[in-house]
């Protein structure tokens, strides 16, 4: 192997697809960040051990999406709309005299609609913790690469929006964790 090792080499193909699905889940729910709740939806929607175990415990993609939306709306009710980072970013550039919409329009003309993504959804602090935890989970289970089950273990270890969604759906997270471990060893 001549190529430099990149962070992507630390994930299996299925895990990479699940992470891509979580980014899409965030976008389709209208969120401009990737949180643990989107990682959970991505894992449920993509193929892999995590998806199978989640379904076996009654956590289907549709149910996860509905509950995630419900909790987000409840948050907005209580705290107001989170500041739209995308607008703040565009305002900062417009202050410099840069018209992002125009740049995106020209990029779209040449390379197709939506070719220039800006601003890109960023990972929440907890979503980053999930990734770090998944590296540790894989290592402890003696695996070279992080697979979907390690990401799911990371989510279960990192208390956050995802574990709140699972709790609201009546999923027994202890039993879920045990099922993952049974499959992962």
């Amino acid at each position: 192997m001549t190529e430099a090792t990149s962070v992507f080499d630390r994930f299996t193909e299925l895990a990479k697809r699940a992470l891509a699905a979580s980014r899409e889940a965030a976008a389709s729910l209208g969120n401009d960040y990737v949180g643990t709740e989107h990682q959970l939806i991505g894992l449920a929607e993509a193929a892999g051990t995590a998806s199978e175990v989640l379904r076996a415990h009654g956590a289907e993609p549709a149910g996860l999406r509905a509950e995630t939306t419900r909790q987000f709306e409840a948050y907005v009710q209580a705290h107001g709309d989170p500041v739209p980072r995308g607008q703040v970013a565009k305002d900062a550039l417009s202050w410099l005299g840069i018209d992002v919409a125009e740049i995106q329009r020209r990029a779209g003309e040449t390379f197709g609609p939506g070719a220039l993504k800006y601003p890109r959804a960023h990972y929440s602090g907890r979503a980053k913790m999930v990734l770090q935890s998944s590296f540790r989970q894989a290592r402890e289970l003696g695996k070279q690469q992080v697979d979907t089950e390690h990401l799911l273990l990371g989510i279960l270890e990192t208390q956050g929006s995802a574990t709140r969604v699972l709790a609201a759906l009546g999923v027994d997270t202890q039993a879920l964790r045990q099922s993952v471990l049974d499959r992962a060893t």
Binding site: K90, A92, W95, L96, I103, L116
Partner: peptide, 11 residues
């Protein structure tokens, strides 16, 4: 603005 310009540049 500098931060956002850097992000735009990356994209």
């Amino acid at each position: 603005a500098v931060l956002e310009l850097r992000r735009l540049l990356q994209e």
